[in-house]
């Protein structure tokens, strides 16, 4: 059974048209299912968990990067350990989304077709304290000190952008081709100063000390605090992906 989780912002009238198109397409494809709206996160969490316990196997987040992140963190909750191994997650983006691009989802219409094709990829999740992340964590700040594998420390003297990558976005995969072929079970720290000057480190464990002038953004939407420890989680999620995914 398909369970569609609509984000709160989709209740605004300007999204009526796109939702109507999605619903028509899903009906045409025979993929109709139950809908839960994330208007009250606490109640929505409970409702999603209840549906999963009652047999929902395909969970489809409808919205933006934040929606998929919220859904992911509910599905990965320890309460659902027994059920989560059978769950497949999918995503229908209602606007442009970096995460959707990573998974080969171009727009809402095409994402419905991808849902039907059901090409499933096993994805190991990253973990930043209590939050799971799919794609990457962006580090914003200067003179940042990063401890890798508890062995060596990197100091960013000056940097343009710094990412901890689990699954690369389309943009990052152009800069670092074949990233997943380099090492299957690692996170990657990518630091770019200019096109000619960049650094790249595979890592099992990344620590950031408490620093006042630094912020971390996971999956383009969740802010994490320092000090923090980032690593690959033992948890995996089965994700429905498009042909043109970035990994």
């Amino acid at each position: 059974m398909h369970l569609y989780i609509y984000d709160d912002f989709l209740s605004k009238s300007r999204y009526n048209k796109v939702l109507s198109k999605i619903e028509t397409r899903l009906t045409d494809l025979g993929l109709s299912g139950k809908i839960i709206r994330l208007n009250n996160l606490k109640n929505s969490d409970k409702a999603i968990k209840e549906e999963i316990k009652q047999g929902a196997k395909t969970i489809v987040a409808v919205g933006n990067d934040y929606t998929i992140s919220k859904v992911l963190n509910v599905v990965m909750d320890n309460d659902l350990n027994y059920f989560s191994k059978d769950i497949v997650i999918s995503f229908i983006p209602t606007s442009s989304s970096s995460l959707a691009e990573s998974f080969g989802l171009i727009n809402a219409q095409q994402a419905c077709d991808v849902l039907l094709a059901r090409r499933i990829k096993d994805v190991r999740l990253g973990k930043c304290l209590n939050n799971y992340f799919l794609s990457n964590i962006k580090i914003l700040g200067n003179n940042t000190e990063i401890l890798i594998n508890k062995n060596y420390q990197i100091t960013l003297l000056k940097n343009k952008s710094c990412y901890i990558i689990n699954i690369p976005t389309k943009e990052l995969s152009k800069k670092i081709p074949n990233i997943r072929e380099k090492n299957q079970e690692k996170l990657f720290l990518f630091i770019e100063n200019s096109n000619q000057d960049y650094s790249f480190f595979p890592a099992d464990n990344i620590e950031l000390k408490k620093q006042a002038n630094i912020s971390l953004i996971a999956d383009h939407c969740i802010t994490c605090q320092t000090p923090t420890e980032i690593s690959l989680s033992e948890k995996r999620v089965r994700f429905i992906v498009g042909k043109n995914r970035a990994f």
Partner: peptide, 11 residues
């Protein structure tokens, strides 16, 4: 596999 760029200091 690993690139230590010019703007990086590793200890």
């Amino acid at each position: 596999e690993t690139i230590i760029g010019g703007s990086i200091k590793v200890k």
